[in-house]
């Protein structure tokens, strides 16, 4: 499902006292069925972008179009935003902190039941999903509070996938996990994205991860989108990345070092280890 944001702005009412502009003049397109990574340093507005898309914060300006539904800040309709929200699944940062039910199964079917899916059907789906996200089906009867953090995160992600969203949004899904755990969670998401041909938005601070998985990239800084292009184009420009306090992916740094030391120029910018390996072989360096 295609998503466009035209000149969107939003501010937070943090209470009676604090007030903050979090998004200004946001112009962005999330292509249908593509995986778009949103990168940017802390406080650049990445999470707020997800919140304004899902209607958790109301836009004060601009238009958001999702498929054929449109939300216009000038003529705001909460029901339109609710309709959009139904198509979206948002996995928050540290989603394991939102589990509450007595059993893993009950937690996974909480969303589908709210949408009116019959209990039996929801339970069957929960079992399939548990296997998909790498949970032992025996754990379905366990209390979520008895699981490890990594397992709990899988439960939380299954709880969102169970709602069968058309658009999947993930806010730092791998934060706080060990390297093996990070890879597991991300390939789980990647598989789901490919298999269901979903439009997926991945918010991350890890440029290496974004380089591996994303088709397109959106770079955010100070509450606005400063660049949107395909992944290779964004990562080919180290100056730009540095300007927004982001590092180049490690593969790029390695490529630059090799090119400098060997005094050659490889024919293309490599953004994954595999690409670099084959470029080196082709150049006859290995």
């Amino acid at each position: 499902m295609h998503i466009t944001l035209e000149d969107v702005a939003a501010d937070y009412k943090l209470g009676p006292i604090r007030h903050a502009d979090v998004l200004v003049h946001v112009q962005a397109v999330f292509r249908d069925k593509a995986l778009t990574a949103v990168i940017g340093h802390t406080g650049s507005g990445k999470t707020s972008l997800l919140k304004v898309l899902t209607g958790l914060i109301t836009p004060t300006q601009g238009r958001i179009r999702v498929g054929d539904i449109m939300v216009d800040a000038q003529d705001y309709s909460a029901s339109h935003h609710k309709a959009i929200r139904k198509k979206m699944g948002l996995v928050f940062q540290y989603p394991e902190t939102q589990l509450f039910a007595e059993t893993v199964e009950k937690d996974i079917i909480f969303g589908p039941m709210n949408l009116g899916v019959p209990e039996q059907e929801a339970k069957e789906q929960a079992r399939e999903l548990a296997i998909k996200v790498g949970l032992d089906p025996k754990l379905l009867a366990a209390s979520p509070f008895s699981l490890s953090n990594g397992q709990r995160r899988r439960v939380a992600i299954a709880g969102i996938l169970a709602m069968k969203p058309d658009i999947l949004m993930l806010d730092e899904p791998a934060a706080g996990l060990d390297p093996a755990g990070r890879k597991d969670i991300l390939s789980l998401i990647m598989n789901w994205h490919r298999e269901h041909q979903l439009t997926t938005i991945l918010v991350t601070q890890d440029i290496d991860e974004a380089a591996c998985y994303a088709d397109e990239m959106i770079v955010m800084s100070e509450g606005t989108v400063v660049m949107q292009a395909d992944t290779r184009e964004v990562l080919s420009d180290p100056e730009l990345l540095r300007a927004y306090n982001l590092e180049s992916p490690r593969v790029r740094v390695l490529q630059e070092k090799i090119e400098y030391r060997a005094g050659i120029k490889l024919p293309r910018v490599c953004i994954t280890i595999e690409e670099l390996a084959s470029a080196l072989i082709e150049a006859g360096l290995v």
Partner: peptide, 25 residues
Amino acid sequence: DAQRLRGADIGEGSLLRQMRSLIPV
């Protein structure tokens, strides 16, 4: 926010329903 996105109607319906709907929070 997280529970609302999972379709929870928090603060709607009768008093009993409202109280039950607060459990996930």
